[in-house]
């Protein structure tokens, strides 16, 4: 299966679940900003969770089906359309050769994931297909997708992907009546859960109270490295230098003027700013859907509870996969 990019949109990159084995050499994790949606897109068409997907930012992109396609899309950045007919998200879609697929506006989120049966066929670089544009490696030629880029899927389909393909293949657009069960969670009034970071105690009580009660807005300088959060700044109890140490996607750092920076997928692996909090892993995918201007609030939970939430979410994803497989037994 093959597509050709007509309009690349704001920022379109190949991602998987990231590059975790080279952190000691300061190679960032990268990977999908919303890993939950990326995994769901793969599950819908019977792919392994870590297959490469395309991450689209906001709306405006379009591509042409150069062959018949079995695809699925998830996330909240856009609605896919063919000839002004909307294609439903979170389920397998059969799209015949020649279709022109466009990404129209969706107000729910910021990023959309497109999976294809077999996964996008690109070489592994340092164990991952994720694009890290800053150093120019991974994904498609180490860069974001451009007009006229051709992308092909791997021909190694899982038995489940083969069955889904055969169940939908025809000469027109076709999709399943079932969906993957989880509608995209919107961020309206959504609270992001955080755990206290190791330097939490460096900040004044009043600042902590502010952090846990007032809204923060996503600044438009935000990108795949991090979200700059506009809101009331944090005050330190005492000035103290932090020796550079490990950080990870989801770490909230406080920079010198007291502003908050939420580190995301392409963040550097070490940092010297105090870490006031860490986003719960179960809520980090939602942060990948934040767009400039969005407001978020924080709620404190323990590391213990965060781990429980993480395993509940993992279970949930596993069950979605099993439910889809059960339909084709």
């Amino acid at each position: 299966m093959k597509i050709r990019i007509v309009k690349p949109g704001l920022l379109t990159t190949i991602q998987d679940l990231g590059r975790w084995a080279y952190l000691a050499q300061a190679v960032p994790v990268s990977g999908a900003m919303d890993t939950y949606s990326a995994r769901l897109a793969n599950k819908c068409i019977g792919n392994p969770d870590n297959d490469a997907v395309i991450e689209f930012t906001a709306s405006g992109a379009s591509f042409i089906a150069e062959t018949d396609l079995l695809i699925a899309y998830t996330g909240g950045g856009a609605i896919l359309e063919v000839n002004e007919q909307q294609l439903p998200p979170n389920r397998p879609l059969f799209v015949p050769v020649g279709s022109n697929i466009t990404f129209t506006n969706s107000r729910n989120g910021f990023r959309t994931y497109l999976a294809i049966a077999g996964g996008w066929d690109l070489p592994l670089v340092l164990g991952s297909r994720s694009t890290y544009t800053i150093a120019g490696f991974g994904g498609h030629k180490g860069r974001s997708l451009q007009k006229q880029d051709i992308l092909e899927s791997s021909q190694n389909l899982t038995p489940l992907a083969e069955k889904i393909f055969l169940s939908l293949k025809t000469d027109h657009i076709n999709y399943s009546s079932w969906h993957a069960g989880v509608p995209f969670r919107t961020l309206d009034n959504y609270t992001i859960r955080i755990m206290p970071g190791h330097e939490f105690g460096w900040f004044e009580g009043q600042s902590i109270a502010t952090l846990l009660s007032t809204a923060y807005n996503i600044n438009n300088r935000s990108n795949r490295m991090g979200c700059f959060l506009d809101g009331i700044q944090m005050k330190r109890r005492h000035q103290q230098e932090l020796l550079s140490t490990a950080v990870t996607p989801g770490t909230i750092q406080v920079v010198n003027d007291g502003s908050l920076v939420l580190l995301m997928a392409d963040a550097q692996t070490t940092g010297g700013y105090p870490r006031i909090a860490q986003i719960a892993a179960a809520d980090l995918p939602l942060c990948g859907q934040l767009k400039p201007g969005d407001a978020i609030k924080f709620e404190e939970i323990s590391f213990h509870d965060a781990e429980t939430l993480y395993f509940e979410q993992e279970n949930n994803i596993e069950m979605i996969g099993q439910a889809i497989a059960a339909k084709f037994r």
């Binding site: 975790w20 084995a21 000691a24 490990a246 990870t248 993480y310 395993f311």
Partner: peptide, 21 residues
């Protein structure tokens, strides 16, 4: 275990939680 990251005064272990659990 996925990575160990040495820094000035810390060593950080990154791991796959399902396997460790």
């Amino acid at each position: 275990l996925l990575s160990t990251v040495p820094a000035y005064a810390t060593l950080t272990l990154f791991y796959e939680p399902g396997t460790v659990k």
